[in-house]
Amino acid sequence: MTTEKRLISLSVNGELQAKIVEPRMSLADFLRIELELTGTHVGCESGVCGACTVNINGQTARACTILAVQVEGDEVTTIEGASESGEFRDLQDAFHARNALQCGFCTPGMLMMSAELLTQNSKPCRQEIREYLSGNYCRCTGYEAIVDAVETVAQTRNARVGEQDD
């Protein structure tokens, strides 16, 4: 069977991209193969592990469960873009200081989810952090360091907001 390739255009990390893709190509493969944004990882290709988590139009999504042709006209942010813009530099620093990563395979997805959590809930308790990130697997760290890092960032951000309020 032949399938018609399609031209898609979208914004990835603030850059406009126009590419011709097969409809069956997932967004994760599109980012990795076509755009060489290999920071988005594929761990299960079935939406379960969270390694492929990216941000689409302001919301996290599993890039393996989305077809590239679906994101026509959308704004996609990957770990590379978020790193360059510095939008969650504090999270990255906290992960680093707390060693909240070992092999790093889960890390981009963890960061994307953590960033979203903190925009929705600026004072999450440990249990809320655990629940929000529970769809992202990490096989190395045992998770505690990740919870610590996110908690620290939440506290630091709140302290900063507190100072501004004063």
Binding site: L37, I79, S83, H96, N99
Partner: peptide, 18 residues
């Protein structure tokens, strides 16, 4: 802290599939 962890945090790891 692990110096080599920074590139992993920036999505700049280099795994075999990359």
């Amino acid at each position: 802290p692990r110096p080599n962890a920074k590139r992993l945090l920036n999505g700049r790891g280099n795994y075999t599939d990359d």
